[in-house]
């Protein structure tokens, strides 16, 4: 039993998972509604709510950048952690490979999001 008494690094991933979960609960449904239902069907919101110039301006503003980055990165970390644990439940135990695949994709997605937000300029 003593061998297992190493301090766990889980708080890092659990923290990201928790933060992502909270954002997903707060913004997930409304984002699905806006991007998937309201705008495409022209309900409630004006049809050009997500037009290119508007979205570009949004992504160029520091607050919009921050929002997009947090939403994309934390949703990814949340999903990665959830998938990693669900695989464990299904009998695919969290070895280095599973962890790398799950958290690696989240890290990659985070970098891509940061790069893209940087590239759209300020």
């Amino acid at each position: 039993m003593k061998a297992a008494m190493k301090r766990s690094n889980a708080p890092i991933f659990w923290g990201l998972f928790g933060a992502g979960g909270m954002l997903a609960a707060l913004f997930g449904p409304v984002l699905v509604f806006i991007t998937g239902i309201a705008v495409p069907l022209g309900l409630i919101l004006p049809a050009d709510a997500m037009s290119w110039p508007r979205m570009q301006a949004f992504a160029q503003h520091w607050a919009g950048k921050g929002f997009l980055f947090a939403i994309i990165a934390l949703f990814l970390w949340h999903a990665a952690h959830r998938i990693c644990h669900s695989l464990h439940d299904l009998g695919v135990h969290a070895g280095a490979a599973t962890r790398l695949a799950c958290y690696g994709s989240a890290a990659l997605g985070t970098l891509l999001a940061a790069g893209a937000l940087w590239a759209v300029g300020f």
């Binding site: 039993m1 008494m5 766990s8 708080p11 464990h88």
Partner: peptide, 14 residues
């Protein structure tokens, strides 16, 4: 905390 925060601790719970 040596137990609760260890690899055998609370974070095994889903």
């Amino acid at each position: 905390m040596e137990v609760a925060g260890s690899e055998a601790g609370a974070f095994n719970c889903t």
